[in-house]
Simulated assay, not measured.
Amino acid sequence: MNQTKTIKELYVLRSIACLSVVFLHAIGIGLSSIPTSQISHTAYVFWDSLNMLLYFSTPVFIFISEFLLAYSYRNKRIPSNFLKKRAKFLLVPFLFMAFFYAIPYATPLSEGVKKFLLNAVIGDYHGYFVLIIFQFYFLHLLSHKLFKKINPKIGLSISLFINVAYLSFFHFIDPLNIPFNNYIWERFYWIPFFGWFFYFTLGFYCGHYYESFIKLLVKYKVIILSAPIFTSAVLLFFYHSNLLMVHSSKRVDILLHATFVMFFIYYIAYHMKKIPTVFLTVSKYSFGIYLLHFFFILAFDYFYGFFSIKLGVSYIFILFFFSTSSSMATTFYVNKWRFGNYLVGQLPQKVKEQIEQNQDIKASNL
Rank of each mutant, 00 (worst) to 15 (best):
T107L: 13
S72M: 05
F200Q: 04
S65W: 02
I78S: 01
T231A: 03
H140R: 07
L235A: 05
D174K: 14
L117M: 12
G305H: 05
I361P: 01
F82A: 04
F317P: 02
F279V: 05
Q354N: 13
Q354K: 13
S37K: 06
I297P: 01
F317N: 05
S40H: 06
N163D: 07
F320T: 07
T231N: 02
Y290P: 06
P59Q: 11
V344K: 01
K219D: 11
Q38Y: 00
G312Y: 11
F46A: 01
L24C: 03
S283D: 08
L298C: 07
F200K: 07
K88A: 15
I132F: 04
D301C: 08
E111V: 10
K149M: 15
V121I: 15
F180S: 03
F82V: 08
Y220M: 09
V234I: 15
G340Q: 15
D174Y: 13
V351D: 08
I7H: 14
S37T: 11
I229Q: 02
F46H: 00
G123K: 07
N181Q: 10
F295V: 04
S283Q: 05
T4G: 04
S308Y: 06
Y73I: 08
R251Y: 06
I316E: 00
I16K: 03
Q357V: 11
F134D: 00
Y101N: 07
V278G: 02
V113S: 13
F294D: 02
L202P: 11
Y101W: 10
P35I: 01
K219H: 12
F264I: 12
S326I: 02
S80A: 02
V60I: 14
F237P: 00
I254T: 09
L109H: 11
D124A: 12
G312M: 12
N341C: 14
H293Y: 01
I7N: 14
Y285E: 00
K85G: 09
I178F: 09
G305S: 08
F180E: 00
A233G: 09
V164T: 11
L292M: 07
D124W: 07
Y209I: 14
H257N: 10
G30Q: 01
H208V: 14
K221T: 13
D124E: 03
I191S: 06
Q349A: 14
S110L: 14
M52H: 14
Y128R: 01
W337H: 15
F96R: 06
P59S: 12
I191Q: 08
T36Q: 05
S37A: 09
Y137S: 11
V261M: 09
Q354E: 07
F307H: 10
A70Y: 07
V252K: 04
Y315D: 10
F100S: 07
W47C: 04
L10G: 15
N163H: 15
L236Q: 01
Q38F: 01
M262Y: 14
G305F: 05
L280S: 08
V351Y: 08
K76E: 11
Y199V: 02
F322K: 08
P93N: 04
R74S: 14
K115E: 08
I122P: 04
Y315R: 14
K284T: 15
S326L: 08
F67C: 04
Q3A: 13
S327N: 00
